[in-house]
């Protein structure tokens, strides 16, 4: 029970820690006002408990496909909000009000998606009063691991910012968000909305999905040992969208710099 709590903590909550690191290093510094961070915390907590409460009912919607359909919509929304938000990295101008607001919306929805799933697990475990000690110990260890990893990631990202490796940071954003949006394929295949084709390759021998590295790589860039054709296509399309945004923003920045000179 202890190990299981640690695994689920990392699986469900590490993506939130990674996103917080990305937002706090690449977007927040002197761009998103601190008052807005209070709204983020408040709306996240309300959203998590509201979703936890209504999730069984949401599951009954769309002929039993409710959870998958709603999570798909949420992930798509998160993707576009954060794509627009992180594009400010390329121009290095003050973040526009709409970019700041979209980043906040993306961050809140992403937190609600992942944390509400973890609350379901906690609710299931805490029903058994004998396991409370194990759960508390597991939560402490999980939190410790996530905080250590986040500290490492935060300082690495900060170093990249200092060295002005903005394109590299943009690639990190692209891989992270593409990994998250690609989950949509598995969700829709699960409820038979998208065709389910076999795995294109199998890299289980290299890194197992169930291993610690598998979980970590999945969190960072959506690693899958046996991805389907549809998964790869969505992943590629997402990366292409990032590339297109890169060129649009870069050309705008060039025009802006020329005008200033």
């Amino acid at each position: 029970m202890l190990i299981n709590t640690v695994i689920l903590f990392i699986k469900d909550l590490l993506p939130i820690f990674v996103l917080l690191c990305l937002v706090s290093t690449c977007i927040t510094p002197n761009r998103v006002p601190h008052e807005k961070l209070v709204y983020v915390c408040f709306s996240s907590v309300v959203g998590i408990f509201a979703k936890f409460y209504y999730l069984p009912m949401m599951g009954e919607l769309f002929d039993g496909m409710g959870i998958e359909v709603i999570k798909t919509l949420e992930l798509v929304l998160v993707y576009f909000c954060l794509l627009i938000g992180c594009s400010s990295l390329l121009t290095q101008n003050m973040i526009a009000a709409h970019q700041s607001n979209l980043t906040i919306v993306g961050l809140v929805i992403f937190t609600v998606i992942n944390a509400s799933e973890f609350i379901i697990f906690l609710d299931s475990y805490l029903a058994n009063s004998q396991s409370i000690r194990d759960v508390v110990a597991g939560l402490s260890i999980g939190l410790g691991i996530c905080l250590s990893f986040s500290a490492l990631l935060y300082f690495s990202l900060h170093w990249f910012i200092k060295k002005e490796f903005f394109t590299l940071l943009y690639v990190v954003w692209a891989l992270f968000l593409s990994g998250q949006i690609s989950q949509v394929v598995n969700l829709l295949q699960q409820v038979d909305i998208i065709k389910s084709s076999g795995a294109l390759w199998d890299s289980t021998k290299l890194v197992k999905d169930s291993s610690e590295y598998g979980h970590l790589l999945k969190t960072l860039f959506g690693y899958e040992a046996g991805p389907s054709l549809e998964f790869i296509m969505l992943y590629t399309a997402s990366l292409l969208l990032f590339i297109v945004t890169f060129f649009i923003k870069s050309s705008k920045k060039q025009h802006y710099d020329i005008d200033r000179v």
Binding site: L55, P56, G59, G64, M65, D192
Partner: peptide, 23 residues
Amino acid sequence: FDLNREKVLFPKRKSTIFIGPLK
């Protein structure tokens, strides 16, 4: 992990998952 499926099963409720075609 083998089937690439993940679904929360709420208490006292039925849940549906589609799997396959599989080898």
